[in-house]
Amino acid sequence: MGWHNKKINGQQHPSPLLYLLSLGLVLLLWQGALLALEDSARRFILPTIAEVVTRFLKLLGDGSLVRHTGITLLEMGLGLALGTGTALVLGYAVAHSRFLAHLLEPIIVTSQAMPIVALAPLLAIWFGPGLVSKVLVCALIVFFPILVNVSSGLNHIDTGFQQVFRLLEATRWQRFRWLEVPATLPAFLTGLRVGGTSAAMGAVVGEFVASSAGLGYLVKQGQNLYDTPLMFVAILTLTLLALATYGALGLIERQVLKWRCIGKT
């Protein structure tokens, strides 16, 4: 019971043994599904574990997996950087200027309601099938959670803290550096984790629409050729990528926000 509670509130990390156990469970289900399927049908829809592993090693060996992963990663990274940068600047502006807030709020709310992935075909027409259109999809996906978190984080800084800084005659820069940045960091990192993890989705959708490389392209290629082992390899790699992003951002969060864990029970 205690174990369960800890896992749900996310304070305690489950042991690596449990990860292995759940992995085993998935593989077992997979194998079970293979057995349940008829021999002729399964060739098309479900590859064996061995097929996927072989394919993975082959793609790894000839360097193509690395190349495609690199391209998707580049799209994700640039999109993340662009989306984060824009969101930070606009978030700061919106929090500090009533005029800008009133001007941009309707646009922001509307675009938040808009499913960004639906824009991907349009962006492909505007910016071509190259890198730019995917970076833009990623950036848009990353942009909103960060913008919303940062501007509300800035707006919710305790007025007491602000008075402390006013009383110390802090300059605008000092207030930014010593108050606004550290006070908003938790909200920013939450937004970054949400946005960063979905950056993979942005890249893949962009690649689905128009591309000649990338992990999303591999998935699409696999679909066209009924090459399910290829699809499995690409999907699993994408999952690992998203997990790694999530993990890395979580690690940064714990490092940067050490003070936050203190005194919390």
Partner: peptide, 9 residues
Amino acid sequence: FQQPMLLPW
């Protein structure tokens, strides 16, 4: 102030 207003970070 009535509250200490110490920066938690």
